[in-house]
């Protein structure tokens, strides 16, 4: 418990002083503001530059379209930012041997991994909610047509957050296996982007964390039994992956 507390505080200090939280905030929240503005400006830009191209699809951009654009960016860009920011959270401890002194003082590795998971889960979940809320109101101001209700967007946001928690645990697992953080980051990005392909396999689709994203993009999230089971599965994956990560770390000989 004391290791958990010490590392919980330490991760927060590190996140602030090494600008990790700032980078995550930019990676997650920036597009919440930029996307609606871009969508607003795009037709104007295209009007001036292209003659005879059908730009009608950009002309009827509405609230729902704008929010969907942000969700896609969270999936495509925020995922990469998260992977690249978190790739060092575990590998640096080992590579830089920062963990050696704490280990000789009786550091408990469960405490360390759970602290790291919790800090970044809380941070990324809060940023995601802030991003969704900002994006919701910005989109509403710029595209007041076809309004989506805030509650349905919040439900989607919740699913996205749970999905991102899975991404965090995945990055931690891979960085406990590979010595170099960048390998772990690239591999986790690869897994993240191949999941939408695997989901086409019917039997698996409901059991993959990506199912949450698929549902979130529908704007009409109903927490029926299929979705609940899928959420439970994702949470189970997170727990299993974290247990394996701790076990991996215990086996590594650091000297």
């Amino acid at each position: 418990m004391s290791s958990f507390k010490a590392y919980f505080k330490k991760e927060i200090t590190e996140g602030i002083r090494n600008y990790k939280f700032l980078i995550l905030a930019i990676g997650i929240i920036l597009f919440a503001i930029l996307d609606p503005i871009m969508l607003k400006l795009l037709p104007e830009i295209l009007k001036g530059q292209t003659q005879g191209v059908d730009i009608s699809q950009f002309m009827n951009i509405n609230h729902r379209f704008s929010i969907t654009k942000y969700m896609n960016d969270i999936y495509n860009i925020a995922n990469i930012v998260i992977a690249l920011t978190l790739m060092g959270v575990i590998t640096d401890e080992i590579k830089d041997k920062n963990i050696v002194i704490p280990l000789t003082k009786g550091l408990n590795l469960e405490g360390l991994v759970i602290a790291k998971t919790l800090v970044y889960s809380l941070i990324i979940t809060s940023f995601t909610f802030v991003g969704f809320i900002i994006n919701y109101y910005y989109s509403q101001i710029l595209f007041p047509e076809n309004l989506v209700s805030i509650s349905s967007v919040m439900k989607s946001c919740l699913l996205y957050s749970i999905y991102l928690l899975f991404v965090i645990s995945l990055i931690y697992l891979l960085s406990s296996i590979f010595k170099r953080g960048i390998v772990a980051a690239l591999l986790s990005i690869l897994i993240i982007f191949t999941m939408p392909l695997i989901i086409n396999i019917k039997i698996l689709s409901n059991y993959l964390p990506f199912y949450l994203i698929k549902q979130a993009n529908n704007f009409n999230v109903i927490f029926d039994s299929t979705l609940t089971i899928s959420i439970l599965w994702t949470l189970t994956y997170i727990v299993i992956i974290t247990v394996i990560t701790i076990d991996r770390l215990k086996r590594i000989e650091i000297n």
């Binding site: 290791s3 505080k9 330490k10 200090t13 041997k97 920062n98 050696v100 002194i101 000789t104």
Partner: peptide, 30 residues
């Protein structure tokens, strides 16, 4: 581990912490 102290060959610390903060951090672990 409770009765020994170890200074490794190349002791590594978190560079963004101050000396006092690091000592406090280790006390917290203990």
């Amino acid at each position: 581990i409770n009765i020994i102290g170890y200074l490794p060959e190349n002791p590594k610390f978190y560079p963004y912490m101050t000396g006092r903060e690091y000592l406090k951090f280790i006390c917290e672990i203990k």
